[in-house]
Simulated assay, not measured.
Amino acid sequence: MTNKTNLLYRLPLRFYLYQFLSLFLLALVFTWLSRDEGLDHLLTGYWFDAATHSFPLQKDRLLDLINHRLIKQIVIAAGVICLLYGIIRRQPRPVLVAVLFGLGALTVGILKATSHHSCPWDLVEYGGKAISYPLFSTVPDGSGPGRCFPGGHSSSGFGVMALFFLFYRERPRLAWGSLVFGIVLGLVMGYGQVMRGAHFFSHNLWAGWWVWLTQVVVYGIVSTGLVKEPKSL
């Protein structure tokens, strides 16, 4: 028998209005921060060794093991466990939440694969050959290999924000806590990549933006389509 506490539910319209308004305002802020790449170069510069024209932590084994591999594998495992639990117990909400884990990362992955922005370690100012350019600017000749925007690795951490929809109905505090935890985890995982020269900080901000947008939109569409409101007498 299906556990009623794990059935899908609709969120009120005002929730989506607040979320889309917040996403719109964040998009304006992130665009402003990306206008001249000043913040990105400031943060990346801390981890670049001008004497050797390299990022000393680029191939650091401990950073690669903990941040780039272990944490990501734990997040993936959590998503798989959530999916299997929902399937075995016939509970649609954990299944959808598990799907949201992956959909956000998939969205970022598609955007990243089509991006002309190259990673810091490929750029001229950091010992590479590619030319950097601000977000939404004209792509210059020599932009390099690209495929580095938004931040793919951080999207795995931001995927944890999907737990918001798992807990909101019965435990709203835990839901909001999960959302904050997902944001922090994504930023931490993303900053680990900044330390290695793999991404600019703004790449990770935009990754979180796209992950949350995807999760909110998909949950809204699925829950609205599958959940029937009781008819009034």
Results as ranks from 00 to 15, higher is better:
Leu70Pro: 02
Ile71Tyr: 03
Lys72Glu: 03
Lys72Phe: 01
Lys72Cys: 03
Gln73Phe: 15
Gln73Trp: 15
Ile74Gln: 04
Ile74Gly: 09
Val75Cys: 00
Val75Ile: 15
Val75Thr: 00
Val75Asp: 05
Ile76Tyr: 03
Ile76Ser: 02
Ile76Lys: 04
Ala77Asp: 08
Ala77Lys: 07
Ala77Val: 13
Ala78Thr: 12
Ala78Pro: 01
Val80Ser: 06
Val80Asn: 08
Ile81Lys: 07
Cys82Asn: 09
Cys82Val: 12
Leu83Phe: 15
Leu84Arg: 05
Tyr85Asn: 14
Tyr85Thr: 13
Tyr85Leu: 13
Gly86His: 08
Ile88Thr: 14
Arg90Asp: 02
Arg90Met: 07
Gln91His: 12
Arg93Asp: 06
Arg93Val: 03
Pro94Tyr: 12
Pro94Met: 12
Val95Arg: 13
Val95Ser: 08
Leu96Lys: 07
Leu96Pro: 01
Val97Ile: 12
Val97Ser: 06
Val97Pro: 04
Val97Asn: 04
Ala98Ser: 13
Ala98Lys: 03
Val99Gly: 13
Val99Lys: 01
Leu100Asn: 00
Phe101Ala: 01
Phe101Asn: 02
Phe101Ser: 02
Gly102His: 01
Gly102Val: 02
Leu103Ala: 12
Leu103Ile: 04
Gly104Ile: 01
Gly104Leu: 04
Ala105Cys: 11
Leu106Tyr: 09
Thr107Pro: 07
Val108Glu: 02
Val108Pro: 04
Ile110Val: 15
Ile110Pro: 07
Ile110Cys: 08
Lys112Ile: 00
Lys112Glu: 07
Lys112Asp: 04
Lys112Gly: 03
Thr114Trp: 10
Thr114Lys: 11
Thr114Pro: 00
Ser118Lys: 00
Ser118Glu: 03
Cys119Phe: 05
Cys119Asn: 01
Pro120Lys: 03
Asp122Arg: 05
Asp122Asn: 12
Leu123Glu: 04
Leu123His: 05
Leu123Lys: 00
Leu123Cys: 06
Leu123Thr: 01
Val124Trp: 02
Val124Thr: 14
Val124Pro: 06
Glu125Asn: 01
Glu125Tyr: 02
Glu125Leu: 08
Tyr126Lys: 03
Tyr126Asn: 02
Gly127Asn: 04
Gly127Lys: 06
Gly128Tyr: 05
Lys129Trp: 11
Ala130Gly: 05
Ala130Cys: 08
Ala130Lys: 03
Ala130His: 03
Ile131Met: 08
Ile131Arg: 11
Ser132Tyr: 08
Pro134Tyr: 10
Pro134Cys: 10
Phe136Gly: 11
Ser137Gln: 14
Thr138Ile: 13
Thr138Ala: 15
Thr138Arg: 15
Val139Gly: 06
Val139Met: 01
Val139Leu: 05
Val139Phe: 07
Pro140Thr: 09
Asp141Ile: 11
Gly142Ser: 10
Gly142Thr: 07
Gly142Met: 11
Ser143Phe: 14
Pro145Arg: 13
Pro145Met: 10
Arg147His: 15
Cys148Gln: 04
Cys148Thr: 06
Cys148Val: 08
Cys148Tyr: 03
Pro150Val: 09
Gly151Arg: 06
Gly151Ser: 14
Gly151Pro: 00
Gly151Asp: 06
Gly152Thr: 11
His153Leu: 08
Ser154Lys: 05
Ser154Trp: 01
Ser155Arg: 10
Ser155Phe: 10
Gly157Asn: 10
Phe158Ala: 08
Phe158His: 07
